[in-house]
Design a binder for these strands. Structure first.
Lengths: 136, 136
DNA sequence: CTATTACCCTATCGGATTACTAGGTTAATG
DNA sequence: CATTAACCTAGTAATCCGATAGGGTAATAG
């Protein structure tokens, strides 16, 4: 299940990518347009800024803005920052690997093999999908 | 994230499919072999029985057994019973559809379109993968 | 300089879900 | 009838998530 956090984050990024110029967009504007709790969105944008996707500007006329061209912001990066692992089980996660408590032998586990397939097909999408692709 | 319930259920099904004959397998045997809490596994197998995957036999020599040939048990069915929706968001779910509170227009939502792609690629795997495929 | 604007940060909380346990009931076998 | 093993209901501890509270800090306008 996709978390609201990720969903909101993606919507916010999309909103910013749609702007004609690169002038800062205020949290309040995004929150209202996308029907998101402003305070919650604040924390999400903060995360995205710390992850290097966004820049920010304080004071009057301030707000958030994209640091890169939308076509250079790949979904796989955004998903890993907001949602965490792409894989459905930690034991097949590339970036958030964790061993299972139960499985003595990972390579013999039927679930493991199945989930690798799912991971790869999902990764294939997220690797090749940029923020720019989401808009069109 | 794949729930432990689904993981355990898949492991149990795999265990049964590996049996040479179709004689009943006891919960305790599966639980021990796969390192699953027996009581919890009980409730999972009950679900699988009610969903039509398993038959059961009470009393001595009883247990659970597959009702169909492993190659006729498709992952998509099992996943929907144990895990619920395949999609990452309810608004793109085929069998568990729910409208988003926020989105006024689904077709215009960037997240929506992305998640349809992910759903379809995952469905493609689960539709074509049988329990028999998990074993080999 | 001062007021305003808008981002920054931490802490907390209610609700929902999940993994699991407790404890007993029912049915089949020998 | 005693044993076995599935059936069923209820409850619970822990965790996570979405959201809120309440201020702090930096930048800008005038």
């Amino acid at each position: 299940m996709l978390s609201a956090k990720t969903k909101y984050g993606l919507k916010a990024l999309t909103y910013m990518a749609k702007q004609e110029n690169r002038s800062p967009v205020q949290i309040a504007a995004i929150a209202e347009s996308e029907n998101i709790s402003q305070k919650y969105l604040e924390s999400i944008l903060l995360t995205l800024r710390k992850a290097g996707f966004l820049g920010s500007k304080k004071g009057k006329g301030g707000g958030y803005y994209l640091l890169k061209d939308p076509k250079d912001i790949m979904m796989v990066e955004v998903m890993r920052v907001l949602e965490g692992p792409i894989a459905m089980v930690p034991c097949v996660s590339l970036n958030f690997y964790e061993k299972c408590d139960d499985c003595p032998d990972e390579t013999a586990c039927s679930v493991h093999k199945l989930m690798i397939e799912v991971r790869d097909s999902t990764l294939n999408i997220f690797n090749n999908k940029s923020l720019a692709d989401l808009i069109s």
